[in-house]
Design a binder for these strands. Structure first.
Lengths: 134, 134
DNA sequence: GTAATTTTGGTATTTAAATACTTAATTTTT
DNA sequence: AAAAATTAAGTATTTAAATACCAAAATTAC
């Protein structure tokens, strides 16, 4: 829909959920995250599983279960979370995915690479500890 | 697929085709554009129709027909082309499209708005006349 | 005026993402 | 030990965008 900066629902859920978990003493479960973020709890559950697998989260089943951080919030950057969900951000690449280009240089110049770099730099500069009071 | 900067195939076809048309004396038809850009001629035809409707292109049917610019290349910016195809770029908006946010301020700060602004500024600074020898 | 060529516009198909659902496994509480 | 609550994991459905196709209209060339 004409949106230039593309942040998927999945990445958004991952980032927002992790901040909520950071702000919560003890554990917080999927239902509460779903309520506070107005997102599908099925979708949230699916994404948090990735973060558990990559050892950013600890999950506890059963009554009074939920999720909690697996390490101090100082040690988890927004980039860690983003790349866990979306895979590594590719910096040096044609903005379109065409093997052939009719022109000798890219009509976008260095624009898209710079934008991607700015995005990556922001995510790598912020840690969950920056969001304890947010 | 984890791509941060989102330029649709449609926008890409529009921009690249317009540069090719700029570089062509007389008219160039869909088949040749398809060959040079390695894109679907059906898709190209559809997108060029929008540019004809908005009076950036003149189309000529029949043998030896094709497309040519409707005005001097100095008068058509990349932003004109992009917004003709994708609609107006929205600068001030939540990167996610959620009516509710669990936090008082956006976890992305001004990042996505700045990125979108940078994108828009680049497109508005470049005119087809900048690409006659490209 | 006929045939060839090209755009035009409508429709159909494909693809990928997002979302929803279901069942199983685990843990806690009583 | 049983019941309740919760995550885990796989699958199915929905949706929107992207892409592909086809038939019609227009124009030129001969």
């Amino acid at each position: 829909m004409g949106k230039v900066v593309n942040i998927s629902e999945a990445a958004s859920i991952g980032l927002h959920s992790m901040v909520l978990i950071t702000q919560t003493k003890g554990q917080i479960n999927v239902n509460e995250i779903a309520e506070r973020t107005a997102s599908s709890k099925f979708h949230i559950a699916k994404i948090l599983q990735k973060l558990v697998r990559d050892n950013y989260l600890i999950s506890q089943r059963g009554p009074s279960g939920g999720f909690s951080l697996a390490m101090p919030p100082e040690n988890i950057s927004l980039l860690n979370i983003y790349e866990c969900i979306e895979g590594k951000i590719n910096l040096s690449e044609c903005p379109i995915n065409k093997p052939t280009c009719p022109f000798s240089r890219c009509i976008f110049g260095k624009l898209t690479i710079q934008m991607t770099k700015d995005f990556r730099d922001y995510l790598s500069s912020k840690y969950l500890s920056d969001f304890v009071d947010f």
